[in-house]
Each structure stands twice: as C-alpha cells, then as structure tokens.
Design a protein around this nucleic acid. Structure first.
Length: 823
RNA sequence: GCGAGAGUGGCGAAAUUGGCAAACGCACCAGACUUAGGAUCUGGCGGUUAACACCUUGGGGGUUCAAGUCCCCCCUCUCGCACCA
C-alpha cells in the first residue's frame, strides 16, 4: 500500500472497476424493498458546474447510503436535451443542433463518471432521441382524443428575440425568462394542455406532500390560486345584454356603486355605440392596451378609466350604476368584469375617489364606525352588514352563503370557483424540439398522425440527416399526405415546449428500453413514485407542477399507478463564491474539472457536503477544500500506519477489560454510528455527519500513537470510519477497505449497527447551577441517584462559597444533566 | 401588499428540541519536529477585565428554577407572487 494518499491512482482504479462491473444496475422490477432517488437531470450545455457537483453528490450519497441499508436503489441519469442553446450554437458554428448536443453529452458524461457517481448507466436517456420523444407524441395523440390537448387562437406572450411563444410561467415581470427581453402580446393559434382540468386535485393533493419544503408547497398553492365566491349577472340598462361578474365578497354586493370592465372585455366594442362617449372609450382601450405592456413591469399604476355612457342593474336592489372601462381590471381572471364596491375594496376606492363616485359602507367591522366621507382607504375587514336590505344585521361570513343561495334561487347568480392557473400553452416555433404529430389538411382540417406512423422524426434526430433551418422552412419535413383523405397536406411545424419532456423522464427511467409503450406498467407499479427528488428551488413551480400534472394524467390514462411523482423533495441551495452566485461576468467561477484534477473527486465531494447543510446556500471556500483534503490524508495515514490491527481474526470486545483510552474509543465509535445515522436519516445533514466522524478520528488520536489502543477496538473503529464515510467518499473508502484485507467490496457491506451497551457512558458530567447560572461541575458514576447528586452538589466548593449559608428554596435535578439550586 | 425562510465568534456552521452557547472545520497565535515548511504533531483561540467576576445567539418585553430554542412587539436581509375582484 502506498504510504501517501494518491487520489489520482485510487479514483482511476475504482472508476475503471465500476465501469467494468456495473455494480449499480437494477432490474425493471425490484425484488426487495425499493428506493428511487433522482436528481434533476442536466441540460447538456457543455460542461458541468458546481451546482451540478453539489446536486449529484447529495443524490449519490443518498443512493449509496440506502443501498447499505438494504434497499434496491434506482438511481438513473439522463439529459434534458432539447432547447434553445443548441439552436444558437448551431447557427454560430454552422452545425446541426444534434451534433452539438451529443458532443456535449459525451463530454459531460465523462465528467460525471469522474465524480464517481453510482448511476445505473444502462438507463441513461436523452430526450432528443426518437426513442424518447416518440412516446411523448403517442401520449399527445391520446390526450387529443380525451380533449386534454387542444388547439386554439389566443393572445400569446411572444418573445421577438427568441422568436417564440412563452408560457405565463416563463414571463418574468414582463420579460423573457431566457433572454430578459420584453415580451409582446400577439395573436396566434397554438396547442394547449388542459392542466386546469386537474387544478382541484393539484391543489388538494398538496396536503399529501408532507415530504416537500413548505415554501414550495406554498408557491404551488399560490400559483394555482383558487378563489370561491359568487358569479352574478347584471343586466345592461336598456339592452338585452348582461354582464357577469365574479366576486369573493358577495357580502358587499349592496355597496356596489359602479361597474368596471377590462379594456379587452368583448362588450366594450359596442356598448357605447351611438353615444357621445364612444370615441373616448375606444381611444382609452387603445391607449391602455399599449400601456399595459410597459406597465406590467412597474407595480403601482394609477387607476384610470372612462365612463361608457351606459348603466347596468344590480339585481339585488335594482339600482342603476354606471359602467366604466378601467385599466386595472384583468380580462384573464374571473370574467373580466368587476362589481365595484369602493367602501370595501382598495382599488375600487382609489378609482371612486379619482372619479368622484359614491362610496357606500355596507359592512361595519367590529370596534370601529366607518364614515364614508372621511375614509382614507377601503375597509376590507369582515363585520356586520348594514344598508343591505333583508341581509342587514348578518355577519359577513354567514351572509356570503345566504346571498349566494338567494342569487341562485332568483336565477341571476350561482356559486363559482376560479383559479389563477391557466391551461399550458405548449407550442413553440422552435426547430430543436419534439414535433407535434398532426397534419394540416386543406380538406379535413387538423388530422392526428396515426399512432402506427410515429415517431414523426425531427430532421437530424433519426436516420435522415437534417438541415438546421426552422421547421416551417423545411419543405422536406412539411410536405406529407393527409392520413384521412390521402391528398397532399402540411405537417405541423410547431414543436413541444421542452418542459413537456422533463415532465415524464422520471417515469421513462423505470423501463427505458420498453419499446411497446412509454412505460412498462409493471415497472411503473414497482418503482414509482420517486422516493427522493433533489434539485434547485428554481423549479418550484414550472417543472414540479407540470410533472405533478403529467403523473395524474398518466394515471388516468392507465400508464401508471402513482398519484404524485415525488414523495420527498430536497431543494438544494446555490453554490456561491465570496457571497455571490458564481457567474462568468463576476469572474468568480470555480471549475469542477480543475478542482477534481487538483484535489480528487472525493475531496470535492466531501467539502461540498461538509460546508453547509444541503438546503442552504454553500459558499465555496478554497481553504475549506484544503481542510477536507487534509482530513482524508489524515485518515489515510491513520489506517496505513495501523495496518497491523487488521491481521487478527477479530477478537470480540469486552468493554470492562479495556484500558481507559480503548474504552473511550470503543464508546465513541458506537456513539458516532448513532449520531451519523441520525444526521442522515433526519434531514440528510451530511455536514454534522462528517463532523461526527472527524470527532471519532480525533478521539482515536494521532496515527503514530493509535497502535497503543486495544487492537480489536482500533480495528472496529477504523472499519467504522470507512463504513460511515463510504457514501460520501467512495473511492477512498473502497481502496482502504481493500488494502486492509477485506475481500468483499465495501459497497456490498451493510451500514453499521450501533450498540447501546457499547455507547453508554459510565461517568457523567453533571452541571451545577445556582439560580440557573453555571457554578460548577461534577464527575459522577452514571448510576448516581438524585439524592446523592443533590448532596454532592451542595458540598461542592464553589457552591458552598456562593451560598454563604443561605438556605436553598428548591433543588431541581435533571436526569443525567444538571442540578439547579434555587435560593 | 400577500406568502415562505433566515439573522449565533474573524469566516462556514453546531446545539440530542427548554438544560454547560459556539461541537466540527477554516483562518489566526504559540510551541515541537525539521536543512527547510505552504508538510505533520501538540496546545490556544466569543467579548470586557490585572484579577475575582461580568457580558454574549438582530432589538425590546414576557413565561420559566432554567430561553438561541416557547409567547408578544419591533428591526434587517433573502426568495417567490403581485391591480387575482
């Protein structure tokens, strides 16, 4: 055995062996208890970064730990391989996106292997291959048949820079999530997934996700945005038309003093026809639509509006109230029409004050008297109804239900639920994405490609080589015949949003070679759901919500049995340098390649686990890496110098016969097993797990002095160190395990059990307090009873000094911990 | 504004859930061994103080024999959503 820690040789040796032996392969249907651990798969951008290193290290430790605990562990890896950067690179270098993507995958795969990650590489997949996306196309056809996918014309968010449509989730404060350029509205037809059909289940099942961080659950709840209330019809005075409003505060309906419509409301085009206000209304609509794009970036916008010249009738009291077009009403939410109650809604209040409209109080909150003339802001508190005809005197909450019932009985209203969540627009005008498998026929309209003709190959991903032109410019791709009538027709040139691929990859992993379906049902029933999912919190809404939707839909379509995709979710923090996110522009990027080259993968893994608990941000500290490296070198020497202890036949340890130092190491060994196990089991807090092993190593002492310890104790403690560290630094531990004469790989070993008997302290340190302040300490045998403790405490020199004869009022003894004397 | 989380030494962080605050590591200081040390080993290391002591977990109050931990009020920071009727 080499006398110094040669990480290069060691890591190379074990990676070669793992490559040969594939120790992490698992069958499509597990035979024992299963555990599915998954890290969010990477986009093949070129090379891995420190965020990947951290993410995959955490996942790998969990996978290796669970294997040692006797689980059959599914731990796969793949590539989220469609996407815009490939197109940009293709344009820049004049090559096909497929070439760039596959080159990157090949390189990044070698990087991941250099980290010693324990994947089942036979399950590797890339979403840009026909073997993958053909199943997505098949699913789409089935969704189409169920009405879960449909096409419609809408106003979309268009990014001019990226030349594509964006989902609402991809618009960040009015700008594109990718390129930060302003997003413009544009009318076009596109494909949608009916995620809103699952809105209620997506919301209510959040309660079952007890293994998710609360903030992610809160973000999803907020995004789905359920509101319950009343939908109510107001007749337009002197017309057959009616305006339906939605409100969550039906208890304030007698306080309506005007009506506000979104500028996009269809009725506004004709409402003021023939009236003097018509021109002003149309001008206002134009101006507001233009301003909205700009204003979406700003937060507070002045409430503005214009009177339409028309009135509508509040069906509850027959009152005639003016109809306004207003800049703050959203067409996308509710009905695009709002009953305005200025006394009890802040926006309506501001609008009423600006346009001198009446304010009428109809809810008096307890403990204050609202004066309409002197109110400075709206009162949104619940309270007792006033000025509300038959409902006067009721409390808000009760009144809401009664008023909804009344409206329903009278036929002018009904209970209504509305969500912020909207259907997912999946059409992208990209050419490095999965083709949407339909044909546009002049005679038959939109015709699905028959399942048996799938996949619809994207040029460049199948046998045919492709050009790197947008699909709508590739005549060879577009020209086809109609599956229904056989006449010449055109293929759909839109491709799927890349979030579609990442919504089901974790399902494909369970049977990646299945060539009859998206997933083998038996494998799905056996492996799903994912037990532990790990990734960045930036996917809290988009990816995780879409995946939940897919899981529920695939369940309903009969593919799988799970209700939720990910039982437990760990959102790991970012990797920072000097307090900032690593970025090229800041010049504070640490390159994993360089670090692994310099220190070895095990050291890099160890430091990334030790520097912070996984959910917290990690500040990359080069000196801390030195520390991790030093620790491994110390353990290496400790074992190398004390090889002799492994030669015996493992005599059993009898605690009582040990000398003091050996007994302490023996005890510490078992306490450490317990502590490390608990650190991992509770929250994957590897930082404290490592600290625990460091303490054990410190207790064993200096390498050159350790041989004085009882040989069996030393052997057990060193083996324990290797077993506990193995999931975190696998090459290092395997090498030392083998060098110390173990025939079987460490990976085959089981996690050590701790013995309560061995861990028990036979002496305790008892703290003595006077009035809660530390005054002294006692060393006593562990079985000392309370009365003896009290007596010893009162005799203690410092205590006698402090008490100066005063009589204790009360003495509190806490088992194994302290004695507090109250005077 | 709404929602979630955080605030502990020079730094990264611990604290068996109410019981010795600062484990473990980094940095720093001293010593040992060395031709040498950016290797290794040993010891020290929250603040004030000459010392006895006292103070210390963002700030203020409270509960308790005992509070980083529980309760109330306030401040700061990070993230997400945001005219959602």
């Amino acid at each position: 055995m080499n006398d110094r820690y040669d990480f290069k040789a060691i890591e190379h040796k074990w990676q070669e062996r793992w490559q040969q032996e594939e120790p992490n392969r698992v069958p499509d249907v597990p035979t024992g208890k299963k555990y599915y651990v998954l890290e969010m798969f990477p986009y093949p951008s070129g090379k891995i970064h420190m965020g990947h290193v951290r993410n995959y290290t955490i996942g790998d430790v969990i996978a290796r730990y669970k294997r040692m605990r006797g689980f059959e562990v599914l731990h796969p890896m793949g590539w989220d391989a469609f996407g815009l950067p490939a197109e940009n690179a293709a344009l820049k270098h004049g090559i096909h996106p497929a070439v760039w993507t596959h080159d990157n995958i090949d390189y990044m795969r070698t990087q991941l292997k250099a980290m010693g990650l324990s994947y089942d590489w036979k399950r590797e997949l890339a979403t840009c291959t026909p073997e993958y996306y053909r199943w997505e196309q098949q699913l789409f056809l089935r969704m189409l048949a169920q009405g879960l996918a449909y096409r419609r014309e809408t106003t979309v968010n268009w990014c001019e820079d990226c030349q594509t449509v964006l989902a609402r989730e991809q618009v960040i404060e009015g700008t594109c999530w990718r390129c930060d350029q302003p997003v413009m509205p544009r009318n076009m037809a596109g494909w949608f997934f009916n995620i809103t059909r699952y809105a209620e289940e997506l919301l209510s099942d959040l309660d079952t996700l007890t293994g998710w961080p609360e903030r992610v659950v809160a973000m999803q709840r907020n995004w789905i945005g359920k509101s319950t209330g009343l939908a109510c019809d107001f007749l337009v005075d002197g017309s057959e038309e009616q305006i339906t409003i939605f409100t969550t505060r039906p208890d304030t309906i007698f306080g309506v003093t005007f009506m506000s419509l979104a500028v996009e409301h269809p009725l506004l085009k004709t409402l003021s026809s023939g009236l003097p206000q018509h021109e002003a209304v149309q001008a206002f609509i134009q101006e507001t639509i233009v301003n909205k794009q700009r204003a979406s970036v700003e937060h507070e916008v002045e409430k503005r509006g214009v009177f339409t010249g028309r009135y509508c009738i509040n069906p509850f009291n027959g009152e005639r109230v003016p109809i306004y077009a207003a800049n703050f009403v959203l067409m996308e939410y509710g009905t695009g029409a709002v009953m305005a109650v200025p006394a009890h809604d802040q926006r309506d209040f501001e609008f009423a004050r600006a346009y001198s409209l009446p304010v009428r109080v109809v809810v008096q909150p307890e403990g204050e008297i609202l004066q309409e003339d002197s109110m400075q802001e709206a009162s949104i508190e619940p309270g007792m109804l006033v000025n509300s005809a038959a409902f006067t005197g009721m409390q808000s909450e009760a009144a809401q239900q009664v008023i909804i019932n009344h409206a329903q009985q009278q036929g002018f209203g009904r209970p209504h639920i509305t969500y912020k969540l909207r259907d997912w627009g999946v059409s992208r005008q990209r050419y490095w994405g999965a083709p949407i498998p339909v044909v546009h026929c002049e005679y038959c309209g939109i015709v699905p490609v028959p399942e048996e003709e799938l996949p619809v190959l994207l040029p460049g991903t199948g046998k045919a080589s492709g050009s790197n032109q947008p699909l709508h410019q590739q005549e060879e791709f577009l020209a086809t015949s109609c599956p229904a009538c056989g006449k010449p027709a055109r293929r759909e040139s839109d491709t799927f949003d890349t979030f579609v691929e990442s919504s089901w990859y974790y399902i494909r992993y369970v049977s990646p070679d299945c060539d009859t379906s998206m997933v083998d049902k038996n494998a799905a029933m056996a492996w799903l759901p994912v037990d532990q999912y790990i990734g960045g919190v930036e996917h809290a809404i988009l990816h995780l919500l879409y995946s939940r939707f897919f899981t529920k839909m695939l369940r309903d379509l009969g593919y799988i049995g799970a209700d939720e995709p990910f039982t437990n979710l760990l959102t790991q923090g970012m990797v920072l340098k000097d307090g900032f996110k690593m970025s090229k522009s800041k010049g504070n990027v640490e390159d994993p390649n360089t670090l692994i080259e310099q220190y070895g993968a095990d050291t890099v893994r160890l430091f990334s686990l030790f520097a912070a608990p996984p959910e917290r941000d990690l500040d990359w500290n080069p000196q801390g890496v030195e520390g991790a490296s030093r620790f491994l070198a110390r353990v290496y020497r400790l074992i190398a110098v004390n090889m002799a202890c492994f030669t015996g036949d493992g005599a059993s340890i009898v605690s009582k016969k040990l000398d003091a130092a050996s007994r302490q190491v023996y005890r510490k060994t078992h306490q450490t097993i317990r502590r490390v196990t608990e650190s991992i089991e509770s929250n994957f807090h590897f930082n404290t797990a490592i600290a625990g092993v460091m303490e054990l190593v410190n207790t064993i002492g200096a390498p050159e002095a350790a041989h004085k310890l009882d040989s069996a104790v030393l052997r057990q403690s060193l083996e324990t160190v290797l077993l506990l560290l193995f999931p975190m630094v696998p090459h290092f531990c395997e090498e030392l395990w083998q060098a110390s004469g173990h025939g079987q790989a460490l990976a085959q070993s089981t996690w050590p059990e701790y013995s309560a008997e061995a861990a028990r302290e036979d002496e305790l340190t008892i703290v003595i307090q006077i009035n809660g302040k530390l005054r002294g300490k006692l060393q006593v045998p562990a079985d000392t009873d309370d009365d003896t403790l009290k007596m010893l405490a009162l005799q203690e020199e410092k205590v006698v000094q402090q008490l100066t004869g005063a009589q204790p009022k009360k003495i509190i003894v806490v088992q194994k911990k302290l004695v507090n004397i109250v005077v």
